[in-house]
Write a protein that binds this DNA or RNA. Structure first.
Length: 605
DNA sequence: AACACGTACAACCGCACTCAG
DNA sequence: GCTGAGTGCGGTTGTACGTGT
């Protein structure tokens, strides 16, 4: 927490490293006699770190000092980023619902702050979107009973670089999918909250857990310890939760089904993406990508009445991408103040780009983001709040397409695709197909990524033209391609007819092999699905696509995250769950994998 | 106004884990 | 298999702020 006086003091400092180092009254020596500053971060330091992440992405924090001269150790940089600079952090007081959830989670999990943070963030997602009303139920049970496929992992098992705020949801038998990067609470927040709460309660002589938290902590924790897969364990210790009446609002789903639409949701599609845009201004804008222009809509429900208000209400925090069915517009609904300007509607067919995404294209990309020093950002943190519509608003900046590795924009990716129709197919399925397509066509050396030709009406997975650069990662992903799908359409990642070039972005340098989850159902029907999760664009990028331009570059660290999450070895480790295999998802399709039921690679040991 | 105390939060520290070489 | 770098997590500490006396 930075006080006003402190902030004033900080802002008086010039933004140069000298001042930072000179101001290191609290400093220590590290290796090489490098003086490392301790204590509160200053605005210049934040700017340096932000700029670094913008250029290089997350990770390799120790390199920050080397590359920027910032007198902070890598751990400090990571912490600062994770707890304050990272976009989509929800700050402010905990809501009663959050508090209740924390209590429950702590009763079940103990001091697993990071994991609790992820789950609390999930609740936040629920609150905002209305898509998943967790209603304090056990999340695993919810996921199972509602046929959700969830790609998430307890943060402790997440591979490196994977944002533990990143979740993927897919409602089976629908065309809906959610890819969400949680506007979450940090573990530190929850930890602090809990500690203060404990102290308060202890001081007041109150029991640690309210009476409605009836399961003993020790027992739960013991079970938790015994289960390496708590989060999505087969049998949760609190099975009494299963009696809860959780329901995903079918109306939400039906609305989309009615239009054969699909929904993506993402609050932030890339930490780095957004972060990279921090220097951008806040101004509504449209984006031009190739021949396409992206538009942002402020009031999505007006333009797209099928979007439940509960969802649209959350657009200030989340970015949603609605993928309309074939013959309809592909519309991006971004979780930022969108421009209802009808003049920009003509751009909708071109799909969308996520503000802040690094999915920068050859065209002009609208990159929303606060400008340091020009926005009313809360200092020292830049995180969004639920109600901050101004968080990551569109801006009229043009970003040079530069990937996380600093590759030049000229290193573009040529994408070609036949139009995708999400009808009768889920985005995920389309993605699965995409990966397969990649696998089948990876031999084409000149282009990195493919674009799906995914005729959902016929459920054919042909007509896809993949032009993929000869890339080891592609090969890797192809080899590791597995299946992650259900018999029904899960996610429609495709574009529409008007968008013949559904492009997925990929950073060849960061591309990782695919991890694909297989449904026995899929295998039963012999469908060879494969999802290129090394190109999270398959999950995400496909909706913030460049449609007209055939050359795209993937700058999304989110993609990296997905790729990392999905890893490189899943396929090899993956063992399809046999039909009839007992599952926690009793009565639920086995393709609704929970973590402990997912392919091994999903279960980070 | 000054002080003490409690609260909230940022940041640091130590340990453990992962992964590449 | 070993080692070191990088990273994540939980515990702890430091500090600013609010409030009551």
């Amino acid at each position: 927490m930075q006080t006003e006086s402190e902030e004033t003091r900080i802002q008086e400092k010039p933004i140069d490293l000298t001042s930072i180092e000179e101001g290191s009254s609290l400093s220590s020596l590290s290796g090489g006699n490098r003086v490392l500053k301790k204590g509160p971060w200053t605005v210049p330091e934040d700017a340096i770190l932000l700029n670094y992440v913008k250029k290089h992405g997350e990770g390799n924090w120790n390199a920050v000092q080397k590359h920027t001269g910032l007198s902070r150790c890598g751990k400090s940089c990571r912490l600062r980023w994770a707890n304050h600079l990272r976009p989509n952090l929800k700050k402010g007081s905990f809501t009663p619902e959050e508090e209740q959830l924390i209590i429950e989670l702590h009763a079940k999990m103990g001091n697993k702050w990071a994991r609790m943070a992820a789950l609390v963030s999930l609740q936040i997602l629920s609150d905002i979107t209305g898509f998943v009303d967790l209603d304090n139920d056990d999340i695993d049970d919810i996921i199972a009973r509602h046929n959700l496929i969830v790609l998430t992992a307890p943060s402790s098992r997440l591979p490196r670089k994977f944002s533990n705020e990143l979740y993927f949801f897919a409602k089976k038998s629908t065309n809906m999918g959610l890819v969400v990067q949680m506007p979450g609470r940090t573990d530190n927040e929850i930890k602090n909250y809990w500690n203060t709460r404990i102290k308060r309660r202890q001081r007041a002589g109150l029991p640690l857990y309210p009476s409605n938290i009836c399961y003993p902590v020790s027992e739960e924790n013991q079970q938790y310890k015994n289960s390496s897969e708590y989060m999505l364990s087969d049998k949760q210790p609190n099975d009494h939760f299963q009696g809860s009446n959780f329901e995903i609002p079918d109306t939400v789903l039906n609305n989309f089904n009615a239009t054969h639409g699909s929904l993506y949701s993402a609050s932030s599609f890339s930490d780095v993406n957004v972060n990279s845009l921090l220097s951008q201004s806040f101004e509504p804008q449209s984006s031009t990508i190739g021949n396409s222009t992206l538009s942002y809509m402020k009031h999505s429900e007006k333009l797209y009445p099928t979007i439940p208000s509960s969802i649209s209400d959350g657009l200030s925090t989340f970015a949603y991408m609605v993928v309309e069915p074939r013959g309809k517009q592909l519309t991006s609904i971004l979780g930022y103040p969108c421009d209802p300007d009808p003049r920009k509607k003509n751009l909708q067919h071109c799909g969308g780009a996520i503000p802040g995404s690094r999915a920068l294209l050859n065209g002009v990309f609208s990159a929303p983001g606060p400008i340091l020093g020009t926005s009313d950002l809360e200092l020292p943190s830049f995180q969004c709040t639920e109600t901050e519509d101004s968080c990551w608003p569109p801006c009229s900046s043009t970003l040079e397409a530069t990937d996380v590795l600093g590759n030049s924009p000229s290193e573009t990716i040529s994408l070609q695709s036949d139009c995708v129709s999400p009808r009768q197919s889920g985005l995920l399925e389309a993605l699965v197909h995409e990966a397969q397509t990649i696998s089948n066509t990876k031999k084409e050396p000149s282009i990195i990524n493919n674009v799906d030709a995914y005729d959902l009406e016929s459920e054919s997975v042909n007509e896809t033209k993949l032009e993929s650069q000869s890339n080891p990662s592609i090969s890797s992903l192809s080899r590791s391609a597995g299946v992650f799908s259900s018999s029904t359409s899960l996610i429609s990642c495709g574009s529409v007819d008007e968008c013949p070039h559904s492009n997925i972005f990929s950073n060849s340098n960061n591309m990782m092999a695919t991890k694909i989850f297989s449904s026995h159902k899929v295998q039963e029907r012999g469908t060879s699905f494969s999802v290129d999760f090394s190109r999270p664009g398959s999950l995400l990028g496909s909706v913030w696509l460049e449609y007209d331009s055939c050359r795209v570059r993937e700058y999304s660290v989110l993609n990296d995250s997905f790729a990392t999450l999905l890893g490189q070895d899943l396929c090899s480790n993956f063992k399809p769950v046999p039909v009839g295999t007992p599952s926690l998802t009793q009565g639920v399709g086995l393709d609704a994998y929970l973590w402990n039921k997912m392919p091994h690679a999903c279960q980070m040991p």
